[in-house]
Design a protein around this nucleic acid. Structure first.
Lengths: 109, 109
DNA sequence: TCCGTTCATCGGCGATATACGATGAACCGG
DNA sequence: CCGGTTCATCGTATATCGCCGATGAACGGA
């Protein structure tokens, strides 16, 4: 049994964008990470449980494992989530700084 | 000269999603509308000025008029903005309810 | 060492996004 | 009624998305 503390270290400092074009790009990137119902569902799962094994996400969604894996990859590339290897499993969890940045960027609209 | 009151009526009531799947779909749809730097830039322009003629947006962006028009179409389909015909021009403005819903859905993550 | 579990990646398919120039439609002014 | 302005749409080309089954890679247990 893994608790969140093992796979989700404190959090990396999310650099706040300074340039406006920078902010646009960052917001667009984060928005793209949740621009699909399946990814929003994945994000909610990761938030509800504090961390999550890939398989558990697959079990909760009506999608193939490879499809879920691709969504996770996209979200990871956007910096929204993190995936830490834990033996044969991969423990996914939300990148708290990224969520905070997304909320801030949207709230400042 | 057109002011915002002529082209942007009070606002349509944006139905708050009840179902969680509904909320996912709605959030994904709104997120998609800002999932591109150009669209974020357009949204900022529309917010900064309270309303905007399409041509003014084209002037502020390094994109062809047709490309901007497509972005506007996508944003309009997502319900994020509104476009009211004003003679030969089209006056675009933000759909306030949609922005509020987007902020609420993101804040509740 | 071998096997089962877990997840990522590959290959393929159809659909959509993104961009542009060119053309069409709607409107106003003269 | 005609020409100019403004914007939408069409047609095209390329890239990415979204989905799947199949295969590969990494790991732990027997």
């Amino acid at each position: 049994m893994n608790d969140a503390t093992t796979c989700c270290p404190p959090a990396s400092a999310e650099p706040t964008p300074v340039d406006e074009a920078e902010a646009d790009a960052r917001l667009a990137r984060l928005a793209k990470a949740i621009a699909h119902p399946a990814r929003v569902a994945i994000l909610r799962i990761l938030i509800r449980r504090r961390s999550c094994i890939c398989g558990e996400i697959v079990d909760e969604l009506p999608l193939a494992q490879s499809t879920v894996s691709q969504h996770l990859k996209l979200m990871k590339q956007a910096g929204l989530i993190r995936g830490d290897v834990d033996g044969p499993r991969v423990c996914y969890c939300v990148e708290p700084g990224a969520i905070a940045l997304l909320k801030a960027l949207v709230a400042d609209l």
